[in-house]
């Protein structure tokens, strides 16, 4: 797997030479600062609404960055035929898949660090506190969630013809999981058989991205989560990431490139 790291570094370079990240960061910062400039009842110590808004923007922005950046990786390589000189080197297709994944994931990680620094500064100006453990746990788990999303986009880019359709589908699926994933068991219990079994099976099969969402805990200053739960969630993300990467590799390994 020696080729993985060089491929990943080229992906990171590409993503940071494009403008997407900067646009989304500036947009997030602008909206947050604009909302922060509104004072409610002449009280400038109100922080939670601003934290919630900032985190929501961070979540949306990083999801957009992760999905759009990943969805175009392999299709662009094939469309622009840069995959040909790449695979003419001693590089396996598995290394290309993992390298692309790693590059996109690392780029998302760098973006997350920048976003969370901004969040920390905004939060500290109001609350005068740096709950670093909470920030670390939230950032890490969000990054783990993005690993699943990036792997899902990569697999999707080999299934769906156009990067735009892949990006839209992955974005919708990720949003749907985040919104209703946790409640599918409740929904299943209200259904008759065989729908109940099907929905329950779906509930257990799909990657529960909402597990990685610590926004409410962060906004409302709850204590950090238990470290065993943090570690278990990390393993859960790792497992699903590999599942999607395996799907991507199986789909890519024998596919004609031209």
């Amino acid at each position: 797997m020696n080729a993985v790291w060089p491929i990943a570094t080229v992906v990171v370079k590409e993503l940071y030479r494009r403008k997407d990240f900067y646009v989304l960061f500036v947009l997030t910062a602008l909206i947050t600062l604009l909302m922060g400039s509104v004072t409610f009842f002449h009280d400038d110590r109100i922080a939670r609404y601003l934290k919630e808004l900032c985190l929501l923007l961070i979540w949306v922005s990083t999801l957009v960055i992760a999905i759009t950046a990943t969805a175009r990786q392999l299709p662009a390589e094939r469309e622009q035929r840069t995959i040909l000189p790449l695979l003419a080197k001693p590089v396996s297709r598995g290394e290309v898949v993992v390298g692309k994944f790693l590059g996109c994931w690392l780029a998302c990680g760098v973006a997350l660090v920048v976003f969370y620094l901004f969040f920390g500064v905004v939060s500290a100006t109001r609350e005068h506190a740096w709950p670093l453990t909470n920030y670390f746990q939230a950032l890490w788990l969000q990054w783990c969630m993005l690993a699943i999303v990036v792997a899902m986009s990569l697999a999707g880019s080999l299934v769906f013809a156009a990067p735009s359709s892949n990006a839209t589908i992955v974005f919708l699926v990720a949003s749907a999981i985040l919104l209703v994933g946790r409640h599918l068991n409740t929904v299943a219990l209200t259904l008759p058989e065989p729908a109940q079994t099907l929905v329950y099976a779906l509930y257990f099969a799909l990657p529960h991205l909402e597990l990685f969402d610590l926004r409410d805990l962060l906004v409302h200053d709850w204590a950090p989560i238990a470290w065993w739960a943090w570690a278990a969630a990390t393993l859960y993300a790792l497992a699903y990431t590999w599942v999607f990467l395996l799907v991507a590799w199986l789909s890519f390994r024998r596919r004609p490139l031209v």
Binding site: D213, D216, I225, A232
Partner: peptide, 8 residues
């Protein structure tokens, strides 16, 4: 049960 670790 596990998911309840991650939200209030």
């Amino acid at each position: 049960r596990f998911s309840r670790n991650f939200f209030p």
